[in-house]
Structure formats: C-alpha cells, structure tokens
Simulated scan of single mutants.
Amino acid sequence: MKRISILFVCMGNICRSPLAQGIFGHLVAEAGLTRDYAIDSAGTGGWHEGEPPDRRSIATATSHGIDISGQRARRIRSSDFRDFDLILAMDRDNLAALEESALPGANIRLFGDIALGTGEDIPDPYYGVPEGFELVYTRLLTGCCRLLETLGAERTSCSGNTSSVR
C-alpha cells in the first residue's frame, strides 16, 4: 500500500486540526497502520506558530485517551500543497483560504464533505463554551472513522462508538 499523507487544517492550528490529527493518528495506530499514513495539521494563519494546542483541546483529547500535548502549531507552507495527498479544511473559510494559495493539482477538500458526507463545517470552539470542544471531538471522531474506512482500512476501534476511542 502506498503511504497516504493527510493534512488537517483549521484557522490557527490550536483547536480543531490538532484534535483531528490526534484522533486520526490514534485510529491509524489502533488499526496497526502507522506505516501506511503520514498525518499532520496546520493553520491558515500563523498567530500561534510554535504553541501547543489550546488547553481545552488537549483536555478533551486526554479525556478520550489521546495525547496531543506534543503537537506545535504551524502555518501552512507552499510545500504542503505538493507534499500531502489530501488536505482537509475544517470549514469553508479555511477551504477558501487554502484554494486561494494552493499550487495546481493540490487535493483540497472540506472535512465535512469527504469525511462526514454532510458538507457541514466543523465549528470553531475557541470562543465558545467548554462543551463545544466535546462536540467538535465527536464530529471529528465520526469523520475520522469514516475517512479511515473510505481509505480502505479495517476499523476495529470505530465500532459505532463516537464518544471515545478506547
């Protein structure tokens, strides 16, 4: 199997995309497919470069057995458009920003289209209530499970449970 590289993208790379990276990475590891995937995340803006994910994203991931505390925010680079097979934007605003700066041939899609099949945006929980992070986690877990299934993996860790990955 050819190694598949996936980049999850949100605005600042501290809330949604680090969660998506952590969830998808966990699912890939649970399926024993770590060698088959390269997974990363980035932001369309560089305000938080070098910072860890938002403490609420870290806490939400930790409560589900996923450690994202070692991730560091970065801004999307032009080389990402060449280096990643699939770039998944968390919402339409980030999708538009990515398409505006993309190199020809980049495979940029909305997470809600390819992973959820609903076309929905994953809401930015940054300015909302703490429960918003749990809602985002649940949508990302559902989408990441479906994405892994779409890419052809047997998913033993996604057996209908959208509240945890343990």
Results as ranks from 00 to 15, higher is better:
3 R>V: 10
3 R>W: 04
4 I>Y: 07
4 I>M: 10
8 F>I: 01
8 F>R: 00
9 V>F: 04
10 C>L: 13
11 M>L: 15
12 G>T: 02
13 N>Q: 08
14 I>L: 07
14 I>Q: 03
16 R>V: 08
17 S>H: 08
19 L>V: 12
20 A>K: 12
20 A>P: 13
20 A>Y: 12
21 Q>T: 10
23 I>Y: 10
23 I>Q: 04
23 I>W: 07
23 I>T: 11
24 F>D: 01
25 G>Q: 08
25 G>R: 07
27 L>T: 07
27 L>V: 11
30 E>V: 04
30 E>N: 06
30 E>T: 01
32 G>D: 03
33 L>A: 11
34 T>A: 15
35 R>A: 14
36 D>N: 07
36 D>M: 03
38 A>F: 12
39 I>D: 02
40 D>M: 08
41 S>C: 08
43 G>C: 11
44 T>H: 08
47 W>R: 14
48 H>P: 03
50 G>E: 03
51 E>W: 08
53 P>W: 00
55 R>G: 04
56 R>I: 04
60 T>P: 02
60 T>K: 08
62 T>L: 14
64 H>W: 07
65 G>P: 09
65 G>I: 12
67 D>I: 06
68 I>G: 02
69 S>G: 12
70 G>V: 08
72 R>E: 01
72 R>M: 01
72 R>L: 13
75 R>D: 00
76 I>P: 00
76 I>C: 07
77 R>C: 14
79 S>P: 03
83 D>C: 05
85 D>Q: 04
85 D>V: 01
86 L>K: 13
86 L>E: 13
87 I>V: 10
90 M>W: 10
90 M>D: 11
91 D>E: 12
91 D>S: 00
93 D>C: 09
94 N>H: 13
96 A>Q: 10
96 A>N: 11
98 L>I: 14
98 L>N: 05
98 L>T: 05
99 E>L: 10
100 E>Q: 15
101 S>I: 15
101 S>G: 08
101 S>W: 08
102 A>V: 06
102 A>L: 01
103 L>M: 12
104 P>V: 14
104 P>H: 06
106 A>D: 09
106 A>W: 05
106 A>S: 13
107 N>Y: 04
107 N>F: 11
107 N>R: 11
108 I>W: 00
108 I>R: 00
109 R>M: 06
110 L>R: 02
111 F>K: 04
111 F>N: 05
114 I>A: 10
115 A>F: 02
116 L>Q: 08
117 G>P: 07
118 T>M: 10
119 G>Q: 05
121 D>T: 10
122 I>K: 03
123 P>C: 05
124 D>I: 01
125 P>D: 07
125 P>C: 06
127 Y>K: 02
129 V>S: 11
129 V>C: 12
131 E>L: 15
134 E>W: 02
136 V>W: 01
137 Y>L: 02
138 T>W: 01
139 R>A: 10
139 R>P: 01
141 L>S: 06
142 T>Q: 11
142 T>Y: 09
145 C>Q: 12
148 L>T: 04
148 L>F: 14
148 L>P: 03
149 E>G: 14
150 T>E: 05
151 L>K: 14
151 L>V: 03
152 G>S: 02
152 G>Y: 03
153 A>M: 05
154 E>K: 15
155 R>I: 11
155 R>D: 04
157 S>H: 09
157 S>I: 05
158 C>Y: 13
158 C>D: 09
162 T>F: 10
163 S>Y: 13
164 S>E: 14
164 S>Y: 12
166 R>D: 14
